Each structure stands twice: as structure tokens, then as C-alpha cells.
Simulated assay, not measured.
Amino acid sequence: MSPRVTSELMTVTVRTLRTEDQAGVEAFARIRHIALPFLLFTPDSVAYDIAHAHPGARFRALIAEEDGEVLGTAQTGVVHDSPEPGQGYVNVYVHPERTRRGAGSLLVSAAEQHLASAGVTKSFSWVLDAPDNRAFAERHGYRSSRNAHFLRLDLANGKLPPLQDPPPGVEIRPASDYDADPRPLFDLDAEASSDEPSDVDYEFTDYEAWLRQTWQHPLFSPELTSVAVVDGRPAAFSAARTDGATRYGTVMTGTARDFRGRGLAKLAKNDSLHRARAAGYTEALTGNDAGNGPMIAINNWFGYEICATEVRYVRELA
């Protein structure tokens, strides 16, 4: 039975979103765009995430409805690629004009029941840094951990640093050059991502999962993803996603350990930004852990500005 809260004025229920529910998928993407405009969501990407989630992730997308109107959304699942078992997550976003109707609490409850049934004992959640949002998380037993920032750059009117010639032995190539065999980019992504600041340790070893969730994802743009190649080896990259219209985001920028300190990530990201602007994208988005000083410095150099902050919360599940 779906979780439900009722009063004389409303009936709110929560259910699992299915890919064949086109209206629900579109509502999910719309609410995420309204509540979290700093990340890219489209109906196609929402449906793809549901259909192609790793089986071990036990992934679910949930929607809360009031008499047929979708009020809120949640994504929940198991952190299946961590060496530490029993970790999961739930991220809840409610339409800002439909709060205080019980939708958020029902979504949290349904997600935590799902996580508990999957053996999860520790639940993580990202919460936008606003008093009401933080109070909501704390009322549900979550305690705050680390911070992260969303950043924005005006590609239409902002002034990008000029493109620079790479040093000898280095070339900048689009990721689409690796269409026939993207495995070298997986190896680079795995190494760079393993050093990202996080509450959770990851073992990034599943190439087939990476193909489905990164390379083949409908938002991913291999044409706008730039790779710094040193003596034939991918050494740094800036991975791009787009909404296919005006918005472009870099979701990972990193460098292999042997090549750090040479400015290669900055070269790759600058190339990607110039490619994006030339392709007609007008807004660039990205995110940084608040403790990632080197990447914050790079984004400041490009002219990105913080547009929102989110807080990582965690709760021990019974």
C-alpha cells in the first residue's frame, strides 16, 4: 500500500515512478528543475535513470501526489559500489509552492522503508542550505556533515579566458574521438573520481556500468567533453552534460595522479567551455565540494559564482 496522509483538505500519497508513466516522468523532471535549477534534468534523463540503474543500487524514483497533482519527488537507493556495506541515500525535493502538505515526510518515510528492506543502515541526503530545509532534515533525525556549492557562469555574456596552446607533448581532444573504445576515459575517470572529497568511499571498477550510466547517458555530450592527452594517454578531462537546449554542465573535471600540478584540467575545462559557447549554450553549471580547494580555484578563475549551497546530512537507520 502506498504511504498516505489525509485531512479534510487534501489526500497525499506516494508511489514508485515507472518509465511508462510519461506524465509522471515529465512532472518529476519539471519539479526537479523548479526546486533544483542548478542540476540538469529532462524527462528523457529521468526515464533513462530509472530504466538503466544498476541492479545492486535498488534504485527507485518516488513521486508524491495530491489528488492527482505531483507535489514532490525523491530518488533513493543503495550505494552498491562502496566497499562499506549498508549505505544508501534519499534526496527529496518538493515543489516550493506545495510545501507543508506532508509530501516531504511521506517521501522520506517511503524511501527509508525501501532502504531498510535492502539492508541499509546509514542513509545520506543532500539538503539545500535554507533554514526550513535544514529544520526538516533534523526533524527526521538527520545530522549535518559536509557542504557543497552549486556554481553558475553566464556563457552568453561572460568573458571566458582565451584558449591557450597546450604545452609540447599535450593535445586537447573531444571525448567523441574515443567513440570506438572509451575504456581509456573510464580508467581516467575512475582514478580521478576516487580522490574526490566525499563521505562515502567508492570502488570505481565496473566498466559496463560506467558505459550505461555515464557514456551512454542521454545528457552526456562526448562532443563537448574535452580530454588533455599526454603522449597518447588521456591525462585530464572535463566531462560535460547538456539539456540539449541552452544549459550545459560540467559534472566531473579531474586529472590522473601522475599528471597533476601541470594545469591540464584547466586546459581541458577551458576548451570544453569554449566548445559549449560555440554550440549555442548560454548557461554553464557545475558543483564543488566546499573542501575541494584546487577545483574551487579553477572555477573562480573562469568566473563561476556560487548560486546555492547544499548540506550533506546522514542518519543511522534502525
Rank of each mutant, 00 (worst) to 15 (best):
P3F: 12
P3K: 07
P3Q: 03
R4D: 02
V5I: 09
T6Y: 08
S7H: 01
S7D: 05
E8Y: 00
L9W: 02
T11S: 01
V12H: 02
V12G: 04
T13M: 02
V14L: 01
V14Y: 04
V14N: 06
R15H: 14
L17R: 00
L17H: 10
T19V: 15
E20A: 15
Q22D: 14
Q22I: 13
Q22C: 08
G24W: 12
E26F: 13
F28Q: 11
F28H: 10
A29P: 05
A29G: 07
R30H: 15
I34R: 15
I34C: 04
I34N: 01
I34H: 05
F38P: 00
L39H: 11
F41I: 10
F41E: 12
T42I: 15
T42E: 08
D44T: 14
S45P: 01
S45A: 07
S45V: 05
S45F: 03
S45D: 06
V46R: 03
Y48N: 14
Y48S: 14
I50C: 09
I50E: 06
H52N: 14
H54Y: 02
G56W: 08
A57C: 06
A57F: 06
F59S: 15
A61T: 09
A61R: 04
L62S: 04
A64R: 09
A64P: 01
A64G: 04
E65S: 02
D67S: 14
E69Y: 03
G72H: 08
G72R: 03
A74D: 02
A74N: 04
Q75N: 13
T76L: 03
V79S: 00
H80N: 02
D81N: 14
S82F: 01
P85M: 00
Y89H: 07
V90S: 03
N91C: 08
Y93H: 10
Y93E: 15
V94E: 04
V94K: 03
P96S: 11
T99S: 03
R100L: 12
